[in-house]
Computed example of a mutant assay.
Amino acid sequence: MDLDVFVTAHRPEWDRLERLLRRGKRLTGQEADELVALYQRTATHLSLLQSSAPDPMLVGRLTQLVARARATVTGSRRSGWRDVVGFLTAGFPAAVYRSRRWWIPTALLSTALAVVIGLWIGSQPEVQAAIAAPEELRDLTRPGGGYETYYSSHPAASFAAQVWTNNAQAAAMCLVLGAFLGLPVIWVLFQNMLNLGVGIGLMADAGRLDTFLGLILPHGLLELTAVFVAAGTGLKLGWTVIDPGPRTRRAALAAEGRAALGMAIGLALVLFVSGVIEGFVTPSGLPTWARISIGVAAELAFLTYVFALGGRAARAGETGDLEQAGRSAVLPTAA
């Protein structure tokens, strides 16, 4: 494309569109029809420039022009409770459901890794000695020791808030860093599984694995599921960089990135629930079976939410992406 020729040929149309936009509501019927036609043509011009001859200043001007024209043509749209309900009942569960082929294997492999690490640490005294001194390990694993008092060391409300913040940050890191070919996601996930494996190994060696599982399972089932979903989605985003499929790499990354952003918000809500369980249920005086039952119920509720509600929404065409009106034009529109 000869950029100078292209600009010379179409600048009058862009200038005319800008003049019509300045008139606002004072447009006549004929001018309103002209504005719609110019908006469609300018959106086509923008797509052509983005795909074949990107010029930052020109693309920036046309992007702003198309956005203003879209707002004028479609009318301003305000988010409200309907958007929140739609996101929670369709967008978020559908996005999680669509990513299941990534996060389910991630969950299975990660859990297996944590178990292997735990078995290795539990059977290797020299590895345990490298982790901490024997007296420190005894303080961690004894009745009333570090692993048990951790969950009751702070007031429940502040502890739940702290846990929620930390876990939400970890999930967000997995989602955001996925664009770097997924490599940082693998590291974040490994660190989480390593910590879990160390706890399993040390408490198993002390003969108190049942106590450890009674402390981890109430909140850990839902918490780890959220982390696995975030990690799987991040890995999917990283794979999109390598293989965008039939879409252009830019369009594929934009769509998957928007879905990942929405998923970060949804997972923050899921982690809030697990944080409440960790802050109030895990250190409570309830019997172990009752605490674990609460954790299992929360996990089953989330999986039902994803596979029933999300599966139905995904089959109906929901992807978790923004509505069409909220997206940038990625393909030329009819002029």
Results as ranks from 00 to 15, higher is better:
42 T>L: 13
274 S>V: 00
96 V>E: 06
118 G>V: 15
187 W>Y: 14
255 A>W: 00
49 L>W: 05
295 G>L: 01
321 D>N: 09
55 D>Y: 08
198 V>I: 12
1 M>D: 04
66 V>Q: 03
82 R>W: 13
327 R>A: 09
312 R>C: 06
133 A>G: 07
163 V>C: 05
117 I>C: 01
70 R>V: 15
9 A>D: 12
304 T>F: 14
11 R>Y: 02
23 R>H: 12
73 V>F: 09
299 E>D: 14
177 L>E: 02
65 L>N: 01
205 D>V: 03
334 A>I: 11
130 A>T: 09
188 V>Y: 14
332 P>I: 05
192 N>S: 05
305 Y>W: 13
98 R>A: 12
82 R>V: 10
141 T>W: 02
177 L>P: 10
224 L>D: 05
246 P>T: 06
328 S>L: 15
111 T>G: 14
182 G>V: 01
326 G>D: 11
46 L>V: 02
84 V>W: 07
280 F>M: 06
66 V>R: 01
146 G>W: 07
228 F>C: 12
11 R>T: 05
114 A>H: 03
119 L>Y: 13
216 I>C: 06
125 P>M: 07
252 A>E: 08
328 S>C: 05
300 L>E: 08
242 I>P: 00
31 E>F: 01
175 L>W: 06
14 W>T: 04
169 Q>Y: 09
228 F>E: 01
257 G>D: 04
286 L>S: 05
162 Q>C: 04
104 I>T: 02
94 A>C: 10
245 G>Q: 11
309 L>T: 10
20 L>F: 11
108 L>I: 15
116 V>E: 02
128 Q>A: 09
176 V>T: 00
41 R>S: 14
45 H>F: 06
179 A>D: 01
333 T>W: 08
36 V>P: 06
265 I>Y: 14
37 A>Y: 09
45 H>A: 12
142 R>S: 10
110 S>W: 00
254 A>L: 11
189 L>M: 11
27 L>F: 06
181 L>H: 04
257 G>S: 08
128 Q>M: 09
57 M>H: 10
172 A>E: 04
266 G>K: 07
49 L>D: 02
172 A>R: 02
139 D>V: 01
187 W>A: 08
90 A>Y: 00
